[in-house]
Design a protein around this nucleic acid. Structure first.
Ligand SMILES: [Mn+2]
Ligand SMILES: [Mn+2]
Ligand SMILES: [Mn+2]
Ligand SMILES: [Mn+2]
Lengths: 219, 219
DNA sequence: TAATATATTTAAGTTAGCCTAAATTTGTTT
DNA sequence: AAACAAATTTAGGCTAACTTAAATATATTA
């Protein structure tokens, strides 16, 4: 079944906001996330329910259904492969890729994505550390924790960001924080939850709780 | 001014069918080329005329206007750069690129196209030998003639196809005819206008007038 | 539990891009 | 020049994806 660009975007957002199917998503949260009216959301979710991609009960919110999950995985795969291409081959920075990948993900060609994957040597992660589903829609998960939960004196490797918006990524650029770096927690300010960290040994870096809640590490 | 995918496709086709502005294009020829009803064409050309991209007089047909030409050049640039990318980097064959490039050409990002152009080392021609407009919309033209006009005994270099449809390109594949090859006219059958040619020295190749009319060479 | 506030759906209207059928204009014959 | 044929436009309708305003259901709180 072939979806429109708009339907693909809705499916991706419902998958995201439902945490991969773990919770119901309200009409208002979708409207808010997508910047449209609640009426438009109701309109679309009725159609997506009709197509069997989501589960919807009037007034009760929606959840992603199995065919919707498969579709979401396909779109995320395309999105993240294009992000890798843009960064690795076209010298985009990680804060420049979002908008373009948002369009490229809708180009319909299985051959294209298969060849792109080959060309990029089958990457497992996007430039933001998000896992890239394989051709069957499977993703490898690794046990990650958020930096804010790390104890003083502990170290970890920064592997992903939870928020891949340009402002956050630019904030990280400014503080010289990048994926793959070894992070050590030097101090925690219980007053405002801010953290003193070192990045690959460089010290003097203070980050807000909002930032440390959006940085994922492995230990 | 930002156009929709559909508007971009119309502009490209009007530019093409008007021979770059040299002749008027009829409603029916557009309808026929695009596979839509004449009524739909009238609808769209009125809007494109309103936007100043084409010149249109009721019942008289349309022609491309200067801003439309600029837009067409931009779309052709994107289309052909993507075609080069698909063939050179993703190992597509020249008969596989059309459909995908038809979608990729609509991705809106000047940075993307600039970087793609850099990445491909500023190619001048598509895999079909079509010139790639530069960033200002300029194209280099070279004096080309169609193979059917070449005299017996003369040679030339095959540089482009006039028809880049998959069936024609596959026909050329089958006959081992490719761009860059030296073509020599060995014989002409005045009975049916068919031609005996050699390609880089290989003989025993007969081609129809329909084919030799769509092969462009330089001498 | 009843009143009130909030969330959601329905109703009605818009635009892009198509359709078919009818009306109109232009081109071609006689 | 009138009649006919072909090309084109207009009229009316459709679907996708939105909008605002009104109606209705659910949640909260007195
Ligand atoms: Mn998108
Ligand atoms: Mn990302
Ligand atoms: Mn196109
Ligand atoms: Mn081409």
């Amino acid at each position: 079944m072939d979806l429109t660009h708009t339907e693909e975007n809705y499916i991706k957002v419902i998958h995201h906001l439902s945490n991969g199917g773990q919770q119901l998503v309200s009409t208002n949260s979708l409207a808010n996330y997508l910047g449209t009216s609640p009426a438009a959301i109701t309109d679309m979710i009725q159609r997506l329910h009709q197509k069997g991609l989501i589960i919807y009960q009037k007034y009760q919110g929606v959840n992603i259904a199995a065919p919707g999950t498969a579709k979401a995985m396909q779109i995320l795969r395309r999105h993240r492969l294009w992000e890798v291409f843009l960064v690795k081959k076209l010298k985009f920075t990680w804060d420049e890729v979002q908008e373009v990948a948002e369009e490229l993900e809708h180009v319909q060609s299985d051959l294209l994505i298969r060849r792109l994957d080959d060309y990029l040597d089958h990457p497992s992660y996007s430039p933001h550390g998000e896992p890239i589903p394989d051709i069957h829609g499977e993703i490898k998960t690794q046990a990650q924790i958020v930096l804010s939960q790390l104890e003083i004196g502990s170290t970890g490797t920064l592997v992903a960001v939870k928020d891949d918006s340009a402002p956050f990524l630019q904030y990280l650029n400014k503080k010289n924080i990048y994926l793959g770096a070894v992070v050590k927690v030097l101090e925690k300010n219980s007053f405002d939850q801010s953290m003193e960290i070192s990045i690959d040994g460089s010290i003097g870096i203070t980050i807000s709780p909002k930032a440390s809640d959006n940085l994922l590490i492995i230990c």
